[in-house]
Design a protein around this nucleic acid. Structure first.
Lengths: 195, 195
DNA sequence: AGCCAACTAGATAGATCGCTCTAGCGAGAC
DNA sequence: GTCTCGCTAGAGCGATCTATCTAGTTGGCT
């Protein structure tokens, strides 16, 4: 079956998320994917960099879908934000504090060392920001305020991941969920069209 | 002179910050420090892990001092917070978006792969959180609120670093500075003892 | 002066790195 | 049938990784 490419991408997503790009060997990825060595360079002639770019694009899109699903799960946006942060915390507890954002570690690793991958990740981040901004606007937040608020929410989420994974306590994520919900409530109340 | 150990720590701090732990070779550190190979295992018999632990402890303490300096630079805490985020943004622009938090990249790399280093970084993070909580309390924030607020401020800072370094735009840091200042203002106004 | 400890210096081992190469398998085209 | 092509399969290359080992140098103490 032609699912070898998918298996390789699945394995690299998990491994990059846990140990980063430089910390993950190609042989380790292939072993985890149960794929032979030659297959990688057939599917990804560009080698590790091309595999990383493909992994990031796919994982970035999937993660956006996952988070967007939580944020759209009900009519009350602040409640959904609280729930999304709490859900991320629950996932971390279940996975021994391993499964947070699939591209954050790689983002920091390559920001100053691999211009191509840096741009690939920047595009993913921009698409997240655009999506969240649009969601805030559609809930009644003013355009300028939504841009700033989306930055803050995404930063709080990614930053809390760093502390939660390292300290193995979920406090930071829960505190951020609460604070972000409060900020969004404030932005909605300031809106004239509020019913 | 006996400053070889310091030179090695300086070099490893800079390199770990830019390219992470796994992405930095020992030879690269020694070349940057102008130190011979044998010296490393004299000063750090435990090898790379011991060097990493020493680098993290020292850099973590220095960074706390740096940030605390900004937060204490004047009587108006919200203004200082805004200024601290803006100052971090300025530093990033000056260093081609390389110099943010010296231990964030390593924190994500080792969280699920190196228990000893994970604990070392967790101690640094806890000390940061304690310090910021105490500062908030001394400014009149209630104890419980200060604990949560310190989590949020630190998360926003670290999370914004990820986006700023990757997108090479400072928007996220500035938006977070504004939002964190607003949150602190709110926590201070809710306080009865407000003059 | 004589000596020891601290430190510098680098060759080298053994494993692992990303990657290239050739060979073989199996399904569809004709 | 048999030819072709997408894909699997893994041996092996040169480079690089961390770490060990022995030697040489330096500075300070008695």
């Amino acid at each position: 079956m032609g699912n070898t490419r998918e298996r390789i991408l699945d394995a690299s997503t998990e491994l990059f998320r846990r140990q980063g790009l430089a910390g993950t060997g190609i042989k380790q990825i292939l072993a985890a994917a149960n794929a032979p060595f030659g297959s990688l360079y057939h599917h990804f002639p560009g080698g590790k960099d091309e595999l990383a770019a493909a992994t990031i694009s796919r994982a970035g899109q999937e993660y956006a879908t996952l988070v967007a699903g939580k944020l759209l799960d009900g009519p009350d946006l602040p409640a959904n934000i609280r729930a999304a942060f709490a859900s991320a915390a629950a996932t971390l507890v279940e996975t021994d504090f391993a499964d947070a954002c699939p591209i954050e570690t790689v983002a920091l690793e390559v920001a100053s060392t691999n211009e191509g991958l840096r741009q690939t990740i920047a595009e993913v981040f921009d698409s997240w920001h655009e999506g969240l901004t649009a969601l805030l606007v559609s809930n009644g937040v003013s355009a300028e305020e939504a841009v700033a608020l989306a930055h803050v929410i995404l930063s709080a989420l990614e930053g809390a991941f760093v502390f939660v994974r390292t300290t193995q306590r979920t406090d930071a994520l829960l505190a951020c969920g609460e604070a972000m919900a409060t900020l969004v409530e404030g932005a909605l109340e300031a809106r004239p069209g509020r019913e």
